[in-house]
Amino acid sequence: YETDHQDYCEVCQQGGEIILCDTCPRAYHLVCLDPELEKAPEGKWSCPHCEKE
């Protein structure tokens, strides 16, 4: 399936195990989030940028 999400972390610009925001195209490593997450959230997730909106 096709997605318009970026394939690198918004914070460190590296690829790998990233989680995708359900609201925007941004993607993040769990450890690059502040506060960092230990595991990917279940269900819908909005990144810090979208949470501020």
Rank of each mutant, 00 (worst) to 15 (best):
Y1T: 15
Y1G: 14
Y1W: 13
Y1S: 02
Y1C: 14
Y1N: 04
E2I: 15
E2T: 15
E2Q: 04
E2L: 15
E2A: 09
E2H: 11
E2V: 02
E2G: 12
T3R: 13
T3A: 12
T3K: 15
T3G: 15
T3I: 15
T3H: 03
D4Y: 03
D4E: 12
D4I: 11
D4A: 14
D4N: 13
H5R: 14
H5C: 15
H5T: 13
H5A: 15
H5F: 07
Q6P: 14
Q6V: 06
Q6C: 06
Q6F: 05
Q6A: 14
Q6R: 06
Q6H: 04
Q6S: 09
D7H: 04
D7V: 12
D7W: 02
D7E: 04
D7P: 09
D7T: 13
D7Y: 01
D7G: 05
D7R: 06
D7N: 07
D7L: 02
Y8K: 09
Y8V: 12
Y8I: 14
Y8D: 06
Y8P: 15
C9Q: 00
C9A: 01
C9S: 01
C9V: 00
C9T: 02
C9H: 03
E10A: 09
E10C: 10
E10Q: 11
V11Q: 05
V11D: 11
V11T: 15
V11A: 12
C12M: 02
C12H: 02
C12Q: 01
C12A: 01
C12P: 00
C12Y: 00
Q13T: 06
Q13W: 08
Q13A: 09
Q13F: 04
Q13V: 12
Q13N: 11
Q14E: 05
Q14I: 03
Q14Y: 10
Q14F: 04
Q14S: 10
Q14M: 12
Q14D: 10
Q14H: 07
Q14W: 05
Q14T: 14
Q14K: 08
G15F: 09
G15V: 07
G15P: 02
G15L: 05
G16S: 13
G16C: 04
G16V: 06
G16K: 15
G16P: 02
E17A: 07
E17S: 03
E17V: 03
E17F: 05
E17N: 14
E17I: 14
E17M: 12
E17H: 03
I18W: 10
I18G: 11
I18F: 09
I18T: 11
I18H: 11
I18M: 10
I19S: 08
I19Q: 11
I19R: 13
I19E: 09
I19K: 15
I19Y: 05
L20G: 15
L20H: 14
L20A: 13
L20N: 12
L20R: 15
L20E: 07
L20I: 08
L20K: 12
C21Q: 00
C21H: 01
C21M: 01
C21L: 01
C21G: 01
D22M: 06
D22Y: 12
D22P: 13
T23H: 03
T23E: 11
T23G: 04
T23P: 00
T23K: 02
T23L: 09
C24W: 01
C24R: 01
C24Q: 00
C24N: 00
C24Y: 01
C24S: 01
C24M: 01
P25A: 13
P25N: 08
P25W: 08
P25I: 12
P25V: 07
P25K: 13
P25S: 08
R26M: 13
R26L: 13
R26N: 09
R26V: 05
R26E: 09
R26Q: 14
R26G: 10
R26P: 01
A27M: 04
A27P: 05
A27E: 02
A27G: 06
A27T: 12
A27D: 04
A27F: 10
Y28A: 08
Y28S: 08
Y28W: 08
Y28R: 11
Y28P: 01
Y28E: 02
H29Y: 01
H29W: 01
H29V: 00
H29C: 12
H29K: 01
H29Q: 00
L30H: 06
L30S: 09
L30P: 03
L30G: 12
L30K: 11
L30D: 05
L30R: 12
V31F: 11
V31R: 04
V31L: 08
V31C: 04
V31T: 10
V31Q: 04
C32T: 00
C32S: 01
C32G: 00
C32L: 00
C32M: 00
C32Q: 00
C32N: 02
C32F: 00
L33V: 09
L33G: 03
L33D: 02
L33P: 05
L33N: 04
L33A: 08
D34K: 03
D34A: 12
D34T: 06
D34G: 06
D34Q: 08
D34L: 06
D34H: 11
P35Q: 09
P35R: 08
P35V: 11
P35W: 03
P35K: 12
P35M: 13
P35N: 05
E36S: 06
E36I: 09
E36D: 13
E36Y: 03
L37R: 13
L37T: 13
L37F: 07
L37D: 09
L37E: 02
L37G: 11
L37M: 07
L37H: 09
E38V: 06
E38G: 13
E38N: 04
E38C: 05
E38S: 05
K39Y: 04
K39L: 10
K39T: 10
K39F: 04
K39I: 09
A40E: 04
A40H: 08
A40K: 05
A40I: 13
A40D: 05
A40P: 10
P41F: 06
P41W: 04
P41Q: 02
P41L: 07
P41N: 14
P41E: 07
E42D: 10
E42C: 05
E42M: 13
E42S: 05
E42T: 10
E42H: 09
E42P: 06
E42K: 02
G43D: 11
G43K: 12
G43H: 13
G43R: 07
G43W: 05
G43M: 08
G43F: 07
G43P: 11
K44F: 04
K44Q: 09
K44A: 05
K44M: 13
K44P: 05
W45T: 03
W45L: 06
W45H: 15
W45Q: 04
W45R: 06
W45M: 13
S46L: 12
S46Q: 04
S46A: 07
S46P: 07
S46V: 10
S46C: 12
S46I: 13
C47I: 00
C47G: 01
C47M: 00
C47V: 01
C47W: 02
C47Y: 00
C47N: 00
C47P: 00
P48S: 10
P48M: 13
P48W: 10
P48K: 09
H49K: 11
H49S: 04
H49F: 15
H49E: 05
H49W: 01
H49N: 13
H49Y: 09
C50N: 02
C50P: 02
C50M: 00
C50R: 01
C50S: 03
C50I: 03
C50F: 02
C50T: 03
E51P: 03
E51I: 03
E51Y: 05
K52S: 07
K52L: 05
K52T: 15
K52E: 04
E53V: 04
E53L: 11
E53N: 01
E53C: 14
E53Y: 05
E53Q: 14
E53T: 02
